[in-house]
Computed example of a mutant assay.
Amino acid sequence: MDRFVGNIAGIGTAAGTRLVVGLWGDSPLGAFTDVMVEDDDGQRTLLAPNQAVADYVSATYTFDQIQVVDVVSTLDDHRLTLSAGPLELTAGIGGVTGLGRLLGLVPGRVATSPRWLSLINPVAGLVMPGVHTAGSAGNGRTEYYGVTTAVNITTASVRWHGKDQGALARLSPPVRFGFSSAPAAPMLVTVVTSIKRPSA
């Protein structure tokens, strides 16, 4: 079981460009940040910091275009900043969401357990349409999202290929990189993503 420990930010824009930013502090590929972008035409792009990340992520999710670019990111309690090839992002971080408070009631070891995540998957889809905690990924892989807390993203400035993408908005329609979308409301979650490969 490959485990990726870190944060995922889901951000929508008024122009229709939607971002899913993965900030991974601990993973089989080391610490890295990658970005999945879907524009208003439905074009799905992966921005990866190196070929190893590009190969792993593109074997798990579906993209129309893959770019290996320099990725520089910072994250603290108040702000997320990111530069990744054609993408520039600054986002404001707010307080814990209602979902985050509920998640805080579940012990972390349980919240990230694949068995628990398989059990609650049907409920997750009802509470947040398009969101799943367990499912089939690419190349026969099975993936589990164990979220332990969630905070609001309150503001965002996004430039994609040099164009301002407008005000922060919901991730609507849901992104289509894998079996699960990020939540519609812009937020940053703390997560353990577990991926079981067929050889495992």
Rank of each mutant, 00 (worst) to 15 (best):
T148K: 08
I153V: 15
Y144N: 03
R159Y: 03
L168N: 01
Y144A: 02
S172D: 15
T142P: 01
A150W: 00
W160Q: 13
Y145E: 08
N152C: 03
F179M: 11
S180I: 05
G178E: 10
G178P: 05
P174I: 02
A150N: 01
R176K: 14
D164E: 09
Q165Y: 07
G162M: 06
V158A: 03
G146A: 10
P173W: 07
T142S: 13
T155F: 01
H161G: 06
S180M: 13
L171I: 15
E143W: 08
G162I: 05
T149H: 10
E143Q: 15
E143S: 14
T142R: 15
P174N: 14
S180L: 14
R176H: 12
A156G: 03
P173L: 12
Q165M: 10
T148F: 04
S181D: 08
H161Q: 15
W160K: 04
G146C: 07
A167L: 07
R141G: 09
N152V: 02
R170H: 06
I153W: 00
G162S: 11
S181I: 08
G166P: 04
N152S: 14
A182Y: 07
D164A: 08
A182F: 11
A169N: 06
A182L: 12
V151M: 09
T154P: 00
A167D: 07
T155A: 04
T154I: 02
R170Y: 08
I153K: 01
W160D: 04
P183G: 13
G166S: 07
Y145T: 03
F179K: 09
T155E: 09
G162D: 08
F179W: 09
V151R: 12
E143G: 14
P173S: 09
V158K: 00
S180T: 15
A150H: 01
D164H: 05
R141D: 03
S181A: 15
G178M: 13
V175Y: 06
V158W: 03
T149D: 12
W160V: 01
G146N: 05
W160F: 12
